[in-house]
Amino acid sequence: MARNPMDHPGEQPGVEPIRLLAIRDVPLSLDEVFRAVGDDAAGGTALFVGTVRNHDGGADVDELGYSSHPSAEAELRRVAEKVVADFPVRALAAVHRVGDLSVGDLAVVVAVSCPHRAEAFAACRKLIDDLKHEVPIWKHQRFSDGQEEWVGA
């Protein structure tokens, strides 16, 4: 016997699933992103945090800076909308930092809530992978030996 989805209103689409999208020049908050994806109908929430590491390609990194194209937030929305279309997303959030960052700083935080954990993991991975490949944000690394490198430009 087929279930009537109206018997389980929590399975119906809720409020707008894209809850938070931003590119910011201030420190990011894990708590803000996690709160944004809270949903009573979600059984799984996946959160990814990207931090500035102290090395890249065998060289010591002292600091880096992120810059973005003016279209970056619109591209981030496009990426988020695709994830929502491809997965049973209850809630989604993504924030990326721009400006100068130090080792250990949060560079990007994304989170997705879905009915089940496997869907949440897959959607979160798709979100961060597509963000890194498609949103015009560039990294300028400064190494301990005085060398510099642009990544993604």
Rank of each mutant, 00 (worst) to 15 (best):
A107P: 02
R125V: 07
A59V: 07
N4W: 03
A153L: 05
D40K: 13
G152D: 13
D130R: 10
H96T: 05
E11Q: 13
V89R: 00
Q147P: 00
C124K: 04
P88Y: 05
G99A: 06
A93L: 07
I128F: 00
E63W: 02
D7G: 12
L127T: 05
P88S: 12
E81W: 01
L47G: 04
D105Q: 11
H133Y: 14
P115T: 12
A118K: 15
S113Q: 07
L20C: 11
C124E: 04
A42K: 05
R117A: 12
G38H: 13
L131D: 00
A153V: 05
D60R: 11
E16A: 09
P115F: 05
S29H: 05
H8R: 15
C114Q: 04
A74Q: 14
L30V: 15
A118D: 11
V49C: 13
E149P: 00
D39G: 06
N54W: 04
D62V: 11
V52F: 02
K82D: 08
R125I: 07
R53E: 01
Y66M: 09
A107F: 00
V135T: 09
D25E: 10
H69L: 08
G146C: 10
V109F: 03
F87S: 06
F87H: 15
V109C: 08
A36H: 06
F87C: 07
H133Q: 14
D100S: 15
A118Y: 07
D145Q: 07
L76N: 00
A153S: 07
F48Q: 15
V26E: 10
V84N: 01
S67V: 12
G50Q: 09
R53S: 02
A36L: 10
R35T: 10
D25S: 11
T51Y: 04
D60K: 15
D100Q: 12
H8N: 12
Q12P: 01
V49W: 01
A2C: 09
V15L: 06
H8S: 15
E134C: 07
H116I: 09
S29G: 06
G152A: 12
P17E: 05
L21I: 12
S102I: 02
I23H: 02
R97K: 14
L30K: 11
S144T: 12
K82H: 11
L64K: 03
D39L: 06
V84T: 06
V84M: 03
I18T: 10
P13R: 12
F87N: 07
S29I: 04
A85H: 12
P115K: 08
N4T: 09
R24T: 08
V108M: 10
Y66C: 06
M6A: 13
V103P: 01
E32P: 02
V61N: 06
G104S: 11
L76I: 03
V135C: 04
M6Q: 10
D60S: 15
V79E: 00
R90L: 08
D129S: 15
S113R: 07
R3A: 15
G58Y: 08
A107H: 02
V84W: 01
E16I: 01
S102L: 09
R142H: 14
A80Y: 01
R3M: 13
E81R: 10
